[in-house]
Computed example of a mutant assay.
Amino acid sequence: MRTRLLYQEDSYIREFEASVLEVIGNEVILDKTAFHDGTGGLQADSGFIIYRSEKYSTVASHKGGEVVHILDRAPAFKPGDVVTGILDWEKRYRKMRLHTAAHILSAVLYKRYNALITGGDITPEYARDDFNIEGDMATVRKAFEEAVAEANEIAQRGIEVKIYWLPREEALKIPGVVKLAEKMPPDIPQLRIVEIPGVDLQADGGPHVRNTREIGTIKILKVENRGKGKKRLYYTVD
């Protein structure tokens, strides 16, 4: 990948300048970006790219191993030009809160039931996660309710979220560093680690809040049985 991922260094970057590397129609690759491209179950970031007096609505995507910025029209700029990127911050920040909440919930369910995530999605409005927890739906709902109650108690402790990098081999020796049932981290020499001290430690490349108190209150929206190994929890944050 040619693009430096600014959100992995600082998830709170809302505006940035970058040099244009490539333009194909209305698709643009930059030398750096704060736009998350929608990998890892998070809905891709949207916002604007500005060049001189032109403002382009933008949605990020992941194509061919690159972060691609899809503009609402073919741009007037060309490779080598410098543009300004601006995130839709309200949507990004809600995803950050939900993403950090998801880490706490997955840690609680892993600790209680050895449950792994078998699927998930995070939008600005809500998140959903599938867990390979078994039992009748009354039992599963109770398990989710208790996990959310514990996650809320943890969030209100105001724990600082740590971000750092470890060699892949070293990181994969840590118990529970991967909580996805059927997916390993990318085959790269260094893995980005997101740690909520005393609660959770996971390999993760996406944006998070700095302190768990920013999450707010996690609330269950719905619980579904999607089949064996897929008990689905929909939730949001207030």
Rank of each mutant, 00 (worst) to 15 (best):
H36P: 04
L201D: 03
T236L: 06
A60Y: 06
I49V: 15
I163R: 15
R128M: 10
A115Y: 04
E153G: 03
L180H: 08
E214N: 00
T217G: 02
G80F: 05
N211L: 01
A149M: 07
L221A: 03
Y126Q: 07
E54R: 13
L5T: 13
P197R: 04
I117F: 05
T39S: 12
V199W: 01
P189H: 03
I154L: 09
I86R: 15
Q8I: 09
K111T: 12
K231F: 06
R97Y: 00
D10K: 01
T236Q: 05
I70K: 14
G120P: 04
Y234C: 08
V67M: 02
N132Y: 12
L5H: 13
I122C: 02
V68N: 09
K111L: 12
R14E: 05
Y12T: 07
I218P: 02
A149D: 12
R97A: 00
G25A: 08
P207D: 09
I133Q: 04
N26I: 07
V82A: 03
L233K: 11
S61N: 14
P186A: 09
K91A: 15
E54A: 12
L21Q: 14
D10H: 03
D187A: 13
A34Y: 00
D45T: 02
K55Q: 14
E15R: 09
E134D: 13
P185R: 09
N132S: 11
Y51H: 15
K55E: 15
E146A: 13
I49P: 08
Q8W: 08
P189D: 07
R4Y: 07
I193C: 05
Y164L: 04
I133T: 02
T118N: 11
T39D: 08
I50S: 12
M137D: 12
P175L: 11
G135P: 05
P197N: 07
L21C: 11
A147I: 08
K32H: 07
G40N: 12
K78R: 14
D204Y: 01
I122Q: 01
E125V: 10
A34H: 00
V68K: 10
Y51P: 02
V177M: 06
W165F: 13
D45G: 01
R2N: 12
R128I: 12
L6K: 08
D121S: 13
G40M: 10
R141M: 07
Q156S: 15
T100P: 01
R157K: 15
A155D: 11
E146C: 06
M96F: 02
Y113P: 00
A147V: 06
A138Y: 09
R141E: 15
E170F: 05
E27N: 13
D204L: 04
G227D: 13
E66G: 00
L172Q: 06
H62Q: 03
V209D: 00
R92K: 13
I13Q: 02
I86W: 02
I50M: 08
G119H: 11
I50D: 03
P207I: 05
